[in-house]
Design a protein around this nucleic acid. Sequence first.
DNA 1: TCTGGGGTCCTAGGACCC
DNA 2: TCTGGGGTCCTAGGACCC
Length: 422
Amino acid sequence: MRAIALIDCNNFYVSCERLFQPKLEGKPVVVLSNNDGCVVSRSQEVKNLGINMAVPWFQLKDLAKRHGIIALSSNYTLYADISNRVMRLLSQYSPNQEVYSIDESFLDLTGMADLTRYAQTMRSTIKQCVGIPVCIGIAPSKTLAKLANHVAKKQKQYHSVCDFNAMTARVLDNLLAKIEVGEVWGVGRRSAERLQQMGIDTVLELKYSPAKRVRAEFGVVMERIVAELNGVACLELDDVTPPRQQIICSRSFGVSVVALEDLEQAVIAYTTRAAEKLRQQHSLAGGIQVYIRTNPHKENSPQYQQSMLLPLFEPSNDTRLLCRAALSGLQQIYRSGYMYQKAGVMLTEIIATSSRPRTLLDDVAAQQKSTALMATLDRINRRMGSGTMQLLGEGVRKSWAMRRENVSQRYTTEWDELAVVR
DNA sequence: TCTGGGGTCCTAGGACCC
DNA sequence: TCTGGGGTCCTAGGACCC
């Protein structure tokens, strides 16, 4: 039988912070999204208080004061580095790994013996070498492995490892009968509501729903989910991450922005970041979309949002060229008199640099010059720190920059910020 | 005062073609 | 009175994920 494992780090961002600040152990801790907006990671103590994911932080301030909740700004540089360490360790346990997200990985363990013990070894190795606690679910399909992981997390008697393959069909069905249908991977809030209206409340009920009916009501995606719940693997492990088809960089501002000049700075900054990512994956973009919007939560102030797609004359990854296009778009959609809350850019029609189309009009010398300049820019910023060299138009003061009031050090990636042992 | 950011896939509908 | 059928491509929007 197929054996797919899903390894999921517990309370990942909070666990990363605790690695370097042991005093946070045993205390209620949350990590907030950019701009210190919403809760994106919660310690067990916080979950026990009944605080949900994605709650706006300002709504929690009273509760936080009463229970002494510690709130940290997110530090993605740190989390990405810790994630890499976990993933590299995990890769030693199977020839076939899919890194699914910053804190999750699938491993194909088909054909291996004594999987529960094997998984326990994995757990203790990661805990010992990196310090991050994980839970592991094992099953014949990805969707079931996700559910097995859910059980491993919720039910203490499994000691953080749950192997559906080691259960009889009857025991498994009894387990599935106790899980709400909304817990299934790929069943979101919308579908869960519709399923419940049809009388399908539990995972077990979805598992035994007639395929025809599911297909007619929800389409192929849900049909595939039902097959996966029945142990038929429809989703393969993707062990190579394909290059992105679109690259987005967008941010809310720390304060509302009114002036075009500030929006221009922000758009240049975001385009610069997006272009860096584009070059990292050795690609060119055929177009760039720019958008701005006011704060939709402020119902009393005038609302405006607009976007514009600018096709490029030829595909490029030159920051200067992309910025020029984005700025021309911004100038066309900008309207004065609004309080802007967010701006963003999206690179589209992405192709590999190696498949750059050739035409008789190509200015090869100019292309080579651009490639060399961008490579130098990237090298300097990688070596000396991101933002060492930037376009002047990005600005220096950056009054619009996001809030990060309580951010921890980049303990593992910056010489100046290493943990100090006394 | 204060509500994230970055992705993918699917579907429906319109334009267009023969 | 009465006006086909089938295909492609593109875009926008919805739903979902972490």
